[in-house]
Amino acid sequence: MEIYPPPLRELINELKRLPGIGPRSAERIAFHLLSGDRSAARRLAGAVVEAVEKIGYCRRCFNFTERDLCSICSDPGRNGRTICVVEQPTDIIAIEKTHGFGGLYHVISGKISPLDGIESGDLKIPQLIERVKREKPAEIILATSSDVEGEATSLFIARELRGHVAKISRIAHGIPVGSSLNFADEITLARAMEGRREF
């Protein structure tokens, strides 16, 4: 027997696909949207439609943007000599929050993972290579994740760019700032020892 009317079941199914939302949460959100004042639900639906229609990719770095160039690429105050390569637009936001980086970005939209059917050509890596040849930056910073796939992706890009850029660097991995060594796991600690620098 079907407990939910079909439109409600459909809503729950769609919510379940979202990252971090399990069946229980999907149900709760769906019920919340439908109970009481429904104008909030309409506003949410409107915002989703508007974002989907208006947000595209920056032609230069593939960050999210409403225009042709994203706000970072069109900011004349940014240093175009350094390009930081990240997996996702959310990584840009994380780095921007640090206020420690004044260069530009390049979003490759994922990482190489044959097991998930993703090869270098499925990412924005060819576009990165073209861009480097065109813009001739002084440094490429590889800021992909530190797992096996992120590491391989960085290595792949580094090999492709060799000879086209003077400096290729990889972000450091190690102990979170402000935390005690006691709480770091052994692998992180070993990496931090490997990546130590002169003091």
């Binding site: 993972s113 044959p114 097991l115 090869e119 096996v148 590491e151 792949f156 090999r159």
Partner: peptide
């Protein structure tokens, strides 16, 4: 665990027609 993961990725890359593998080989 990392060895096993890299190995599976590398084998899948070979199955898909190889090409370059050096970015897996280092790890």
């Amino acid at each position: 665990v990392r060895y096993g993961r890299v190995l599976r990725q590398r084998n899948e890359a070979i199955r898909r027609g190889g090409g370059r593998l050096s970015h897996w080989d280092r790890q």
